[in-house]
Computed example of a mutant assay.
Amino acid sequence: MSQMTLKQLEAFYWAATCGSFAIASEKLHISQSSLSKRLVELEMALKRPLFNRDGRRAILTADGRAFLPRAKSLLNHVDEVVASVSAAEAIQGRCRFGVGEIAASSWMPRLVSSLRILHPQLKLELYVDLGVELETNLLSGKLDGAIIAKSSSHPALESIPLAQAEYIWVAGKNLLKPGSLVEDAIADFPIVTMAQHAGSTSLLDNWRLRSKAVPCEVIESNSMATIAGLVAAGVAIGYLPKGWLRPMLRNNAIVPVLTNTPLDKLNYRFYWRRDDYRPVISALREMALKVADYDAPFLML
């Protein structure tokens, strides 16, 4: 009688929880044909069909749904054993990590280089996007972890506080008279901000409520670098991370703008799937806690 293996259990678990054979095969770094072979072998060992194979989606049968919590328990036990024996050696393979533009263009290279020294067999792949997209890809299994500013209460995700970013109002150096307030300037100039699904848009919403500023024209962009360029060109007033902007402030390409209502700080959190107990997640989380620095300057300036 054939016996189930760890590789078969992994194939079943990720196909079941990702809801996609394609995503599961990518996560395990194997071809879809290899994934399918492992699933068939597992079904033969259990003498039960685990998936309804009537399309590309990984839809569980009743037997598959019943087996899922048992498979999860077995895999968690294996991870605990591996971690207790030699966690460093277990951290290898490909890990897909999602971040926002600010982290990617400032302190993220330090995270990558630090992980490379500690875990040379780990291949970290970075994906830069807005928080809502990172969350979607994390839930689907396309990402293993992500740093997101926008809060999530999804029951499938776990998170811990990571760091804060201090935002300030800025404008082109010749746009406003010295001593001008943002509250007054927005009557004549638009505000440029990230798109609505970005975490930093909540800072503008909260500022408007607390300052009771009059409605104004808003220009949206999905790029912080573009926003900085528009501000420097005198197209609009903007708000950006103070540390990230340090080179532009030092060169006087843009200047701070006074306000009677300071912007809130933006809280960033490290997210991962609640059901993912692999040692690589712990290693990534611990390193992010050590090196995350949203006061770091934009590296390209």
Rank of each mutant, 00 (worst) to 15 (best):
S2M: 11
T5R: 13
L6C: 10
Q8Y: 09
Y13Q: 15
W14M: 04
A15L: 09
F21I: 06
A22T: 14
I23P: 09
S25T: 09
S36Q: 12
K37H: 11
L39F: 07
E41C: 08
L42A: 08
E43A: 13
A45F: 06
K47D: 14
K47C: 08
K47H: 09
D54E: 14
R56L: 08
R57K: 15
T61K: 04
A66C: 05
F67E: 08
L68P: 00
E89G: 00
A90S: 15
F97L: 15
G98F: 06
G98I: 06
I102C: 07
A103I: 01
M108R: 10
P109M: 04
P109C: 04
L111W: 10
L111R: 02
S113T: 14
S114K: 09
L118P: 00
H119D: 00
P120H: 05
P120V: 11
K123C: 14
E125R: 12
V132H: 10
G141K: 08
G141W: 07
D144V: 01
A146D: 06
K150M: 13
E158T: 15
I160H: 06
A163L: 02
A163P: 05
E166P: 00
E166F: 00
Y167E: 03
W169P: 03
V170W: 00
G172N: 02
G172E: 02
N174K: 07
S180I: 00
A185P: 03
I186S: 01
I186M: 01
P190N: 05
V192I: 15
M194R: 07
G199V: 12
G199H: 08
L203M: 08
D205L: 11
D205I: 11
R210D: 05
K212C: 10
K212L: 12
P215S: 09
V218Y: 12
N222T: 10
S223R: 12
T226E: 14
A228R: 13
A228S: 13
A232H: 04
A233H: 01
G238S: 09
Y239L: 04
Y239D: 04
L240K: 05
W244S: 05
P247F: 09
L249Q: 02
L249M: 05
R250T: 15
N251L: 13
P256F: 06
P256K: 03
L258N: 14
D264Y: 03
D264V: 06
W272Q: 05
R273S: 10
R273G: 03
R274F: 03
R278I: 06
A283V: 10
M287S: 10
M287E: 15
A288V: 00
A288F: 02
K290R: 15
K290W: 08
A292H: 04
Y294D: 13
D295G: 13
A296Q: 01
P297R: 09
F298L: 13
L299F: 01
